[in-house]
Nucleic acid binder design. Sequence first.
DNA 1: GTCGAAATTTGATCGATGTCAAACCCGCCT
DNA 2: AGGCGGGTTTGACATCGATCAAATTTCGAC
Lengths: 256, 256
Amino acid sequence: MSNPPSHELVFLNHSKVQWLYTMEETAEMMNSNLKLNSRDRAVLMKTPFLNGLGSSSLVGMLSAMSVLSLASRTSIFREGEKPDAFYCVLSGYVRLYRLSHEGREADIQICGPGETFAECLLYGGDRYAHHAQAAENVTLARFDMQAVRDLADEQKDVARAVMTSLSRHLLNSMDCVANDRLFTAPQRVANYILARCPVDGGPASIRLPFQKSLLAGMLGLAPEALSRAFSTLRKTGVTVRGRAIQVVDVAALRDI
Amino acid sequence: MSNPPSHELVFLNHSKVQWLYTMEETAEMMNSNLKLNSRDRAVLMKTPFLNGLGSSSLVGMLSAMSVLSLASRTSIFREGEKPDAFYCVLSGYVRLYRLSHEGREADIQICGPGETFAECLLYGGDRYAHHAQAAENVTLARFDMQAVRDLADEQKDVARAVMTSLSRHLLNSMDCVANDRLFTAPQRVANYILARCPVDGGPASIRLPFQKSLLAGMLGLAPEALSRAFSTLRKTGVTVRGRAIQVVDVAALRDI
DNA sequence: GTCGAAATTTGATCGATGTCAAACCCGCCT
DNA sequence: AGGCGGGTTTGACATCGATCAAATTTCGAC
């Protein structure tokens, strides 16, 4: 196979780009010290943000991007800072939260692989509206905001990707408000489980992708409340061992 | 002044358009039976959605739009229906809410003049995600979704308006989650009041733009809880009589 | 495998808010 | 001015979930 200089990348189609940036010299193009493994790469490309982009836009986005790995608990940005980038989670989980005056923290969102955060600041406020912290060891794609703004001004498909991403987030966020206001802790947990079970009514088993304390925050609960919710659900046929959850009858869970 | 035929409108600048659509013949262009009074018109034009549009895009948006007036309590759309339009409130207030299995309702958002709702379905899900109901007599601008999608594909400024609107909504919605999880009823009420007071620390008085029961829903409270929150705030110098709220010392409220 | 730290569970308690019912007040209409 | 009715307040109560502390389990590193 040939090795085209990187300035020709704009003329390549999607799959070639995907193949190409596994090579050493594309690291420079992406303006980063990255070593993306294949799983992270696959996640990145399936993001609503990059997913359906033409090759020219895709290369643009990749140029606006860098990859970083952070240890668990590392702060990604803080509320009130000037936003210069938004992020896409490639692996691990990120916690978005806000602090009360007295220092209590409340999670606003938990972002997993493929999810984007802080992209609302592309056209929204002029300060990060919350803290972002690695909840585990994470790999992130970091997008320079001004660069993406410029790209979105130029290319329709980028603008469309932004709109799609924002729309999804908004729907999720409104769902979150509704869930908090409408359901009790066991109901929220049941909903979480149901959303991750096969649709039919039989038995099912799933595995939590993260610690229970993260799930608690995601559902707006203290860890103790989540624990108690699980134990309430035992009488509905839910068994929990570590991260493994077994459901005797999925249909029965729906009635909670 | 001359009276150009409407197909020339695309070449007019913003202010001319603004003047023009006061005239009878533009009603037809807007594909609606509208009689927009001047207040509603001003609200409409200041919307992030129409606000910075070039005249060509503006005309396009106005063509995709119709105006409707609804009596209090009228349903605008229902959860699960196929979305064909999104809306902008011109006057009055609209309640977005979801129902639990047992029929309890939880407000997700209260939309006032200038606010847009359901625009997340432009690129989001394929069903309305909640019910929308007129909380008072309202005037709405109704935008045909497919028409706006087409416009956004064509014209950058429309796409940008969509992104701006979505971004704001997302920030609001995340704020809402944070407020619910972080603050008690009196604190949320205090925050609401503070957000509508002059910034300095002295006395202030504001007037609620709607019934208290609406405010309660907006803050995720039962009306009784709102009432009690107000009475808790009395000892912090907050006096409430009907829709009028007086604050002795704005700075003191901040410490709640 | 073992050890130690961290996460989770459990118990006890408390405060906050929803719910239901009744009293009250205010706006509005005649 | 009077009176009707919806919105609001108040009271009593039940429930949910937060908090603190202690016991227990799990997980990761060596």
